[in-house]
Amino acid sequence: MFRVLLLREIRLMARRKSELVNPLMFFLIVAMLFPFGVSPEPTILAQLAPGVIWVCALLALMLSLDGFYRDDFDDGSLRQMVMSGVAPALIVLTKAVANWLFTALPLIIVSPLIGVMLNLHPSGIAAVALTLLLGTPAMCLIAAIGMSLTVGLRRGGILLALLVLPLYIPILIFGAMGVNAAAMGQSYSGQLLFLAAMSVFTVSLAPWAAGAALKVSLGE
């Protein structure tokens, strides 16, 4: 069942490639604007880099959310899936996995490049990709709860941000802190473990919460 659902997401994504590129371009462009806006001074950039990369990745991820649920809600697909006997939690989990594969993974892959561009210390480059790799699954699943709650509302965009962003803050803090520590040559395994714990926690619990929320939204 999961395979069927995921194949459908992949097929749909392959037919609208622009949505695949949008978050990635946003990430690259915003990160690239910082040296112009703040200062091209390498030492200042190196200091800003961990936070900038993490904030840009977080916003790029938020940008992609709407398309994942809204279309399927509007054309009745979500309801048809539930009526075909798919557990709402499984639908949500598939959506979150697809979101991670199509949005977060490209960001993770280009993030070392941004690190180099912002003059991040070489020892921090790997940490950027690693912290994002462990932190983004939690962000995708938290977003899934928010989307499931707001998908039935006409203009749920701001509400979604209000719901989801506070929950992103711990992930952002530990992610950026991990990169900072790595750039200063310290151990950052504590931060990595925290991010991994967040991801495990959300993978195991968020689908149920989001599934219940989805069921409520479908009744509206």
Binding site: L12, S77, R79, Q80, M83
Partner: peptide
């Protein structure tokens, strides 16, 4: 045991 067809049919334009 049910097939439900409502106002929105769940047919994806991109497929």
């Amino acid at each position: 045991n049910t097939l439900y067809l409502g106002h929105h049919t769940g047919i994806k334009s991109a497929l």
